[in-house]
């Protein structure tokens, strides 16, 4: 710990535990909310509407929507957790402690993004378990499923971290998740296969990055995808690299962190 290059792991652990502490303090709300919303989705889409929808690509509709539901929560929770995690200390002024501690930008990101991703993965797994109560789950590629879960959680937690650094008010904090991410997720094939769309809208959908996440995740479950799995992986990795680049830029320039 005497050189500038060795990692300050106790600091990473401190930030991680501090952030997870908030999750556990509100565990009832953190865990109950996704369970209730998943149950509602199954009641509406699975039982009420799903019974009138034929199987999609040979997968019963109730089962078909499981990857999309998990992805929906994973994206929104990752962004919300990470953006709030870094924005709140800026808002409250407690960020001074992070800035004046012997911590590198990488360690700050590891602590905050690691905690945000952990929370959203936990919620994703809770939704998966809740789904098992309604439909007979089938996961053809469990390792890939976990891989996509991790990659997406980390990528969107990084994206949330960037939003949390960029935002200069609570309104802006909500702006991107509400106006950009949620529509993209709903239109990204959470509840349908984009192959079901007319050719024009199918082509438009391919501009939506969330399509690749959901498609890849769905492939891990059922072995069937809207787009090639390699392209899905490539697009997710590309988004990860973009977010990493943004975070690096922010810390190098001190943007929104230091005057």
């Amino acid at each position: 710990m005497s050189t500038a290059y060795s990692m300050n792991w106790p600091a990473v652990r401190a930030i991680y535990r501090f952030e997870m502490g908030r999750f556990w303090r509100t565990a009832g709300q953190s865990i109950l909310a996704p369970v209730i919303s998943t149950t509602l989705y199954f009641v509406v889409f699975g039982a009420a509407i799903g019974s009138r929808v034929s199987a999609v690509d040979g997968v019963p509709y109730g089962l078909f929507i499981v990857p999309g539901l998990i992805m929906l929560s994973l994206l929104t929770q990752s962004i919300a957790n990470a953006s709030f995690g870094i924005y709140f200390p800026r808002f409250a002024g407690t960020i001074y402690e992070i800035l004046s501690a012997p911590i590198s930008p990488l360690e700050v990101v590891l602590g905050f993004v690691g905690a945000a991703a952990s929370k959203s993965i936990l919620i994703g797994l809770i939704i998966l378990a809740t789904s098992a109560l309604f439909v007979p789950l089938r996961i053809e590629h469990p390792v890939w499923m976990i891989g996509f879960l991790l990659l997406t959680a980390v990528t969107f937690s990084l994206f949330g971290f960037v939003i949390g650094l960029w935002a200069d008010g609570f309104e802006k904090l909500q702006l991107v998740p509400l106006l950009v991410v949620t529509p993209l997720t709903f239109l990204g094939g959470s509840f349908y296969a984009i192959g079901m769309l007319p050719p024009f809208w199918h082509a438009v959908s391919l501009l939506n990055p969330v399509v690749y996440l959901i498609s890849g995740f769905r492939w891990a479950f059922f072995g069937k995808a809207d787009v090639n799995i390699a392209i899905s992986l490539g697009m997710t990795a590309l988004f990860l690299v973009i977010c990493l680049g943004l975070v690096t830029y922010i810390f190098r320039t001190g943007y929104r962190l230091k005057s």
């Binding site: 600091a11 652990r13 401190a14 992070i98 501690a101």
Partner: peptide, 10 residues
């Protein structure tokens, strides 16, 4: 305790 951790101490 959090502050102590930030400074890299056990």
């Amino acid at each position: 305790s959090f502050s102590r951790g930030l400074f890299g101490l056990r």
